[in-house]
Design a protein around this nucleic acid. Structure first.
Lengths: 338, 338
DNA sequence: CTCTGGCACTCGTACGACCCGAGTGCCAAA
DNA sequence: TTTGGCACTCGGGTCGTACGAGTGCCAGAG
């Protein structure tokens, strides 16, 4: 077990390194922080911290930098979440309040988050699986061709073309539309499959094929939407990284283009709280020298999607976590209002 | 006027520089290209080319590199468009054929273009202004609340909420829906305003307010869509740029997040042919050390949107132009089929 | 008039020697 | 357990040198 002072030394190292981006030595530490002990003592502590794997030296005769394990300890036990200042909160609220539709909300959120944290921000569109159906519309485009439009309570609209196995009359169409809506409007997406299961049976034999096709398209749409959309902003912030440039930035840009990777990344966020993945804790190896801070957001206590930022492991964790949490709360509020 | 051989020398310089990314000297030139003259002669030619502003030396006693003006001449007079190989064409076709909807088409196109050119690709969604209306749907969500759904011939769907000034009956709604569709289906967006102008008059006085509201929402939707959407891919390719890294990449990433800038960029594409903007020819100064190759695409000879790539001025112009043109053609075909 | 070979000159880069200083580890004393 | 002292390490910066690629110019040949 590490003594209180050693933890204090680790905290000081992390803070200084995050600020200066340079390895920090024992002397500099005692000067910048009121540790109440001499450099020599700090050196001893550092030796212990290094032995335990919390810090490392890039080269002999250089200062120390925190390891992933060091950051982990820092985040878990040494640092709180730094709340935003009141003006900052005000600015968030004002900025998000101007949004006109869902795309705009997500767009503003992601830009805001990128600007606040000066890192790459990722916002997932509100998930359909947690949402409810507001309306299902069926349009006849041609005798054997329908369009299915799904409207969700989060304001999202999805449409699909349906090719019918047989022509489908207007009367049957109206019938199907009415029955479908009476069953699924207001219901959870996850509940829909069982709710419509027996629907084909109540139609004329000739029409059952079409009804089944429509239903399976509907279910497909819901399922497919597990493949969620994302919005990204602030990639230019990657260039802040400093000197170790090209090697770091490349794989990150590549990862950012892989929706699947990003969804997994956000997916690791703990349902309830904030998730911080540091360096090698990230499954995707291109992100081994970055950290991801993510959290779920939603209206009314329910998580409908996630958002987060990607930045260098050497990041201001308390500040970043504060910004991420605050933005998640406000966007949740906005969604609840609309 | 430059002699034939001097142009040949310029071409050789451009080609070598694009290949090696290093300033090219007179000796190397005569070795790699069969110019039929001695290095000394080439040196004289280079001196002239430099005087005319087509090439420059980074430092005294270094080789020459092309200037923007040099690339311009190269593109205009010295280089053709390099057609893709048959296997490449095949691959494009196969890849694009797998697309299931418009988002997918655009997504596949942009990724394909990024991969082919190894640069940053930008694809604009097919514009609504050039398209025709396939269907307009009106849904009643609440007594005084409608949803307007617009479906275009390019498969795009836009929806808008409409708050009515007064409750609007189902009968009137069906009436409006029918009349609206009979007038606008199959028509150009630009023609719609005049086509629906007198529609409110044919309704009961109580309903006219709502009809007008619906119509103005429809027209707004069409107009708003001048603000087009874009898709981007291949930002990781920016890291190929070489050594002059951070200073180059930063402003480009910033520009890529500014939809407005990008739309202007593509907008500069000549309606008919391909547009190549080299270095300082770009209005946006962050892109002063990059070139943009863009072209319109569309189905049936009509330009519905544009696509292009952004890369270093030192790019393979013939190859890039070939890829851009080919992709534009194929995506046009795909759109025509669907 | 154009091309060519030769030659002196420039300058950027790579290499090695060198010094400096920050930082360390260890040890003996408080 | 903490502290001050001390010898040691080693990365980074500076300087000087040698090298070589590339140039411009010039005189002579075609």
């Amino acid at each position: 077990m590490l003594s209180e002072r050693r933890l204090e030394v680790l905290r000081a190292i992390v803070q200084d390194y995050v600020g200066t981006e340079e390895p920090v030595g024992s002397k500099a530490l005692t000067e910048r922080h009121r540790l109440g002990v001499s450099p020599a003592t700090v050196r001893n502590d550092m030796a212990v911290l290094e032995e335990e794997g919390y810090i490392a030296q890039p080269h002999t005769s250089a200062g120390r930098i925190p390891t992933d394990k060091g950051y982990r300890l820092f985040v878990d036990r040494l640092a709180g979440v730094k709340p935003l200042s009141t003006p900052e909160r005000r600015a968030i609220q004002n900025f998000l309040d101007g949004a006109v539709d869902l795309d705009d909300v997500v767009g503003r959120t992601v830009r805001l988050l990128a600007q606040l944290t000066r890192q790459v921000a990722i916002v997932q569109y509100p998930s359909l699986t947690r949402s409810t159906v507001r309306h299902v519309e069926l349009l006849s485009l041609a005798p054997a061709r329908l369009m299915l439009v799904l409207i969700t309570d989060t304001g999202r609209v999805e449409q699909r073309l349906v090719d019918c196995p047989a022509p489908f009359g207007e009367a049957a169409l109206a019938d199907l539309r009415a029955r479908l809506n009476s069953r699924v409007v207001g219901r959870r997406f996850t509940d829909v499959p069982t709710l419509v299961q027996d629907l084909p049976e109540s139609f004329e034999p000739d029409d059952r094929g079409t009804v089944s096709t429509v239903l399976s398209t509907l279910l497909e749409t819901l399922a497919e939407e597990a493949e969620e959309r994302l919005m990204i902003a602030g990639t230019a912030n990657l260039t802040r990284s400093g000197h170790d440039f090209p090697l770091t930035i490349r794989p990150v840009l590549e990862a950012l283009e892989e929706q699947v990777v990003l969804l997994k990344l956000l997916g690791e966020a703990n349902e309830s709280g904030m998730a911080v993945r540091i360096g090698h804790e990230n499954a995707y190896e291109g992100l081994n020298s970055t950290s991801v801070v993510s959290v779920g957001y939603g209206s009314g206590g329910e998580t409908v999607a996630k958002l987060g930022v990607v930045g260098p492991t050497r990041m201001d964790y308390p500040g970043t976590m504060g910004a991420v949490r605050a933005v998640a709360r406000y966007v949740g509020q906005i969604l609840a209002e609309s």
